[in-house]
Write a protein that binds this DNA or RNA. Structure first.
Length: 200
DNA sequence: CCCGAGATCCGCT
DNA sequence: GCGGATCTCGGGG
C-alpha cells in the first residue's frame, strides 16, 4: 500500500494508522492484527519523546530515518515498536500499543504463555507477533518482515493522554493517544465492546 | 565501573 | 492501585 500518509503530520498519521492491518512472518509463522491503539511522539519539542531536543543515541538512531522505518527498542525486558513518520529532520513516530488479533492466534498464545491479553499493550503485541529488536529494528514497512495493508475503518476515534509518562511535565497532558472507540483490545482502559468492536 | 532511568507486565490487594 | 521482576543503555565518576 501507499505509505505516503506517514510523511505528513504525525498526529494525523497516528490516527490514520488505526484499523490498518499489520502482518509479521517470524520463524516461518504468520501472525496479524488490526491496529486499535497508538501514541504519537513528536520529537524535538515533546518532553516525553526519545528524540526530545534532538537527543540522538545508538538506541534511538532509527527515529532519524525516513517515514516507514520500523523502530524497535527494549525496556524492562520487553520490546516496543514505532513506525517512523516524516524525515531525518523531524525525528517523530507512532508507538503501536494495541492490536485486534486476526491470524495466528494459537501461535500468539504459545509465545505469550497464556490464552488472553495477547495484544493489548505495546510489549504484549510484539511478543505475540515475534517482533524482536535484532530482526525488526531499522527495517522498512512492506520491505522486510513486517507488512502493512488496508484493514478496517473505525466508526470513531477517541483521543486521550499517553500512558506511562507521568514525570514529563506539560507533555503528560497532551492528547496524543488514539484508540478505536468501543474496541476492547486496548491497554489500561476497560472498554465495553461496541457493535463489531467499533469498526465500520 | 556503577548507577539509575525508563513509551512495561503481572499478580495481588 | 501497588510493588516487584527485569534488562539495556547512557551518563557521570
Amino acid at each position: 500500500m501507499d505509505l505516503s500518509f506517514l510523511a505528513e503530520d504525525t498526529l494525523t498519521a497516528a490516527q490514520a494508522l488505526l484499523g490498518k492491518k499489520i502482518t509479521t512472518m517470524t520463524d516461518g509463522i504468520v501472525t496479524s492484527g488490526y491496529i486499535t491503539e497508538v501514541e504519537a511522539y513528536l520529537g524535538l519539542e515533546d518532553k516525553a519523546a526519545h528524540a526530545y531536543q534532538g537527543r540522538r543515541t545508538k538506541k534511538n538512531e532509527m527515529m532519524y530515518r525516513d517515514y516507514g522505518t520500523v523502530y524497535v527498542y527494549t525496556m524492562h525486558g520487553h520490546h516496543c515498536m514505532n513506525f517512523i513518520t516524516k524525515d531525518e529532520h523531524s525525528p517523530e513516530g507512532v508507538l503501536i500499543r494495541g492490536l485486534e488479533p486476526v491470524e495466528g492466534i494459537e501461535t500468539m498464545q504459545i509465545r505469550r504463555g497464556r490464552l488472553d491479553h495477547l495484544t493489548d499493550g505495546p510489549g504484549k503485541l510484539t511478543q505475540s507477533m515475534g517482533i524482536r529488536r535484532d530482526q525488526f529494528n531499522g527495517t522498512r514497512l512492506n520491505d522486510g518482515p513486517l507488512t502493512i495493508s488496508a484493514g478496517r475503518v473505525p466508526v470513531a476515534v477517541q483521543a486521550s493522554k499517553r500512558i506511562g509518562i507521568d514525570n514529563k511535565e506539560e507533555a503528560v497532558d497532551y492528547l496524543y493517544r488514539f484508540t478505536v472507540a468501543g474496541n476492547p483490545y486496548v491497554s489500561k482502559d476497560r472498554v465495553r465492546p461496541a457493535v463489531d468492536n467499533g469498526w465500520q
